[in-house]
Amino acid sequence: MNNILKHIEENPKETQRLIGLEYEQLQQLIQNAERLHYEKQALLESQKVRIIAGGGGRKQKLSLREQIILTLVYLRHLTTFQLLGIQFGVSESTANDTFNYWLPYLRELMPSSLIEQVKKNASDYEVVKEILTDYELIIDSYEQVRERPGDNNEQKKYFSGKKSNHTFKSQMIILPDGSDIVDVVAGEPGPKSDITLFREYRSEFDTKQRFKGDKAYIGEDLITTPIKKPRNRELTTEQKEQNKMFSSKRIFIEHRIRSVKIFRVVQERFRLNPHKYEQVILTICGLVRLRIRALILPLEISAISSG
């Protein structure tokens, strides 16, 4: 048994520090990921034309549970695949392959937002959009440094003067109390303005939907923003108090973005293939929704160490 898995089983209260989820949430995720794995494998097996019986080949060094935890450890701590392989007793390439195998499974299991969760059912989607109009949703975006693109046109497209680096931009919309992520857009070019990004994806919501944003969204009628300081003048005491009150209501979006950045793959320079960026960020958002209990996965009565 891998030392990390053994440590989690012996010290379940430390699971959140190691993985980013509580022990029970990790248990839910492992059970659902294993079930999805077996379903996919059964489907592939049914489509094969076999000459010899199945069940042969080299046995995997890691159990399914260890493979899933390896993937979560990478997302949480952003270690190198070489070091990850040493930690789990496998080669660097096996650690890399394991991560790339399980990432899309985790992405499939955990919708990144409320909108994504209900969008598969058109009637549910319309109902949720209508319900959301009762709230003034909070919106913000953030940039993350990426590797410099090799193509000259691409590097110009992603170079952000604000960060003096090449960046991706992601947009997040949450409920007023931060209790759920309503919508996520990930992997846009960093230089794209916040208001332009919002307008490009505005159609996801009802035309009556209202939002609350920072000064980057001034000029958008649908978004309430702080009072801007007039040129060569100061804000009045009353206006400053209004802005302070506004910030206290908007702080929940900062907390939610911070909870996403607990996973260091979102916090530091993105080193993976840039085409995987959206998949990784949306997977992290799904993990955060599971962490804050906005997303509940089916749970069977069993322990991580069973089976």
Rank of each mutant, 00 (worst) to 15 (best):
A294L: 08
L114F: 09
L109I: 13
R269S: 06
P104G: 08
D180I: 09
K169Q: 10
Q209V: 08
G57T: 09
M245T: 13
H166C: 10
G219T: 08
Q279V: 01
I30E: 03
I51C: 05
Q25K: 15
D194L: 08
E188N: 10
D214S: 12
D151V: 03
L235G: 09
Y142C: 03
I30L: 09
R291S: 14
I251S: 13
L175S: 12
A42K: 14
L29P: 00
S305Q: 11
E254S: 10
S63D: 05
K61M: 03
Q67A: 07
E14V: 03
F270Q: 02
I52H: 14
P189R: 09
Q87C: 08
Q171K: 02
A303T: 14
K249Q: 13
V145N: 08
Q209S: 08
R256Q: 15
A53T: 10
L132Y: 02
F205C: 04
I52P: 02
E136W: 13
S164G: 03
Q209H: 05
I69M: 07
L299N: 12
K59N: 10
G178H: 04
S179H: 11
V260D: 04
L295V: 04
S247P: 02
L78M: 08
L62G: 07
V288A: 04
T80A: 12
S193F: 05
N153E: 14
S113P: 07
F168H: 05
R17P: 00
S259H: 13
M110W: 02
L197N: 08
P111E: 08
K261P: 06
N153G: 13
G213H: 01
E22I: 02
G55N: 11
E9W: 00
I296S: 13
Y135C: 10
V280D: 01
V49W: 00
I69K: 05
S193G: 03
I174D: 00
K48M: 13
S193R: 11
G178F: 00
Q28D: 15
K157G: 00
K192A: 04
L222A: 15
Q41T: 05
R291N: 14
I292M: 14
S248G: 02
R210A: 06
S113A: 09
F99M: 07
K163F: 01
Q144N: 12
V90E: 01
I115A: 04
R146Q: 13
P189H: 11
L137S: 05
N273D: 15
P149F: 01
Y105K: 14
K261I: 06
E116L: 04
V280A: 06
E268G: 00
L84S: 06
T71W: 04
P12K: 02
N32E: 13
K208M: 05
N273I: 00
